[in-house]
Simulated assay, not measured.
Amino acid sequence: MKKQIFNHAKQCGEAECCGLVIDNNVYMPCRNIAYDPINNFEISVDDWIEASEKGQITAVVHSHPNGMPILSQADQFYQQKTAVDWWLVCDNHIYQFRYIKPLIGREFEHGHADCLTMVLDAYMLLGVNLPNYEREDNWWDNGKDYYIDSLPKNDFHQVKLSEIKEGDVILFSLNSQVANHAAVYIGNNEILHHLPKRLSKRDLFSGYWLKHYHSIWRHGKWPLSNFTAILNNMAINTK
C-alpha cells in the first residue's frame, strides 16, 4: 500500500496528491479537484461515496510536495471534521497523524484525556509519536514516579529554566513529592495543559505555576520548525 501511495504522489508532481485508505489496508487514489491543487487538495463527494461503499474509510492521504511534514491549519480543521487519521507524504516519507481532539477545551478524563494525553497529542501533531501507558489515578501517592521514569527512556533530556524553548515539557509537583502534572511550553511565557475537573487550556507560566514547577524536559529530535502545528491547532479551536 505504501508503494502505491508513493507512486501516486510521484505521478501528481508538484500538485498535492490525495486518496483514501480503506479498512487500514487498501489505498484508493482520488482526483484532486481543488481550485489550486499545487497548494491544496479536495476529494470529491463521489470518491468519498465510492470508498465508503468498499469498506470503512480509516485514513485520508495527501502530500506536501514543497511543504512541511506537518498538518497545516486547514488540514487540522478538516481532520477534525472527518475524525479519522490523516497520512501525509512529504520528503519521501509517510507521516501518520492519528485523529486527536482539539487541544483546547477538552473535558478531563483520567487516562484518556488528561495532562499526559495533552503532551502525547501535542507531540503527535509535531510528528513525534510517543508511547502511551496505563496509569491508575493518584499513582503519585502510591510510590510511582511515572514522568521521571519514562521521559529519559523516550529520548527526553532535562534542561534549565533559563534555556526553555517552545515545545519543552514542563513537569510540576502539585501536592506531591514527585512530578505529577505535565504541560507543554508554547512560548510567550505560556503553557498548554489539562487539570482534573477543568477544561484543557493555556495558562501563564508564572506565579503559582512557576512556584510549583519541578523540571523541564526536551525531546532529542525536537524539530522546532514543526511547532507551528500546535499553534495551528489552537488557532482553529479558539476562534
Score class of each variant (00 low, 15 high):
residue 200 S to G: 00
residue 66 N to R: 08
residue 218 R to I: 07
residue 51 A to I: 10
residue 161 L to R: 13
residue 132 N to M: 05
residue 32 N to D: 05
residue 19 G to T: 06
residue 52 S to P: 03
residue 197 K to P: 00
residue 124 M to H: 04
residue 97 F to M: 07
residue 130 L to M: 11
residue 221 K to Y: 12
residue 139 W to Y: 09
residue 144 K to N: 12
residue 57 I to V: 15
residue 92 N to D: 15
residue 122 A to E: 01
residue 3 K to E: 15
residue 31 R to D: 07
residue 227 F to W: 07
residue 172 F to R: 07
residue 56 Q to A: 14
residue 227 F to A: 14
residue 138 N to V: 02
residue 159 V to Q: 10
residue 139 W to K: 10
residue 215 S to G: 05
residue 208 Y to A: 01
residue 236 I to T: 07
residue 167 G to P: 08
residue 235 A to F: 04
residue 92 N to H: 14
residue 186 I to C: 05
residue 75 D to S: 08
residue 1 M to S: 09
residue 36 D to Q: 14
residue 55 G to Y: 10
residue 9 A to L: 10
residue 97 F to C: 08
residue 129 N to R: 13
residue 158 Q to I: 10
residue 165 K to H: 06
residue 86 W to E: 11
residue 57 I to K: 10
residue 113 A to S: 15
residue 20 L to P: 07
residue 100 I to P: 03
residue 200 S to N: 02
residue 229 A to G: 11
residue 70 I to R: 11
residue 75 D to V: 03
residue 46 D to E: 14
residue 98 R to C: 11
residue 170 I to Q: 09
residue 65 P to A: 05
residue 149 D to I: 00
residue 80 Q to F: 12
residue 33 I to T: 14
residue 135 R to L: 10
residue 165 K to C: 08
residue 106 R to D: 02
residue 22 I to K: 12
residue 190 E to A: 00
residue 14 E to T: 11
residue 113 A to P: 04
residue 238 T to Y: 03
residue 168 D to G: 11
residue 148 I to A: 07
residue 61 V to I: 15
residue 27 Y to W: 10
residue 146 Y to I: 12
